[in-house]
Amino acid sequence: MQYLLMIYAAESENPKPGTAEHDKMMQGFTELAQDLEAKGLMKGGNALDDVATATTVRVRNGKAQTLDGPFAETKEQLGGFFLLECKDLDEAIQYAGRIPSAEFGSIEIRPVISCGA
């Protein structure tokens, strides 16, 4: 079954590009993604641009409202995601623990509802 692993971290906590920490983090992501690809577990995933680029849309009474900013103003923001095929929650937890951002942020794991099929 599929799990969505959502990476939450305060953007200020992210290692800055050009630093050794940033290089190490990016290398960690690359290795993890390669491993997941090789095992055929990677169903999707990417990093997201920062929340300053976020746009939120609502439709109320048939009228669309478009707003600047994220849906919720919280310290930790969604910064990226992995969509994985895992045999159970333990396997998903194991890969969540290998996401480099888990060391300063948090990874939320949600089972994906399988529709149709």
């Binding site: 079954m1 159970d88 333990d90 194991q94």
Partner: peptide, 14 residues
């Protein structure tokens, strides 16, 4: 059931 928490004795690293 929904998150599929496994019904197993965990592996040594867990």
């Amino acid at each position: 059931k929904v998150a599929n928490i496994p019904y197993i004795v965990p592996s040594p690293h867990l």
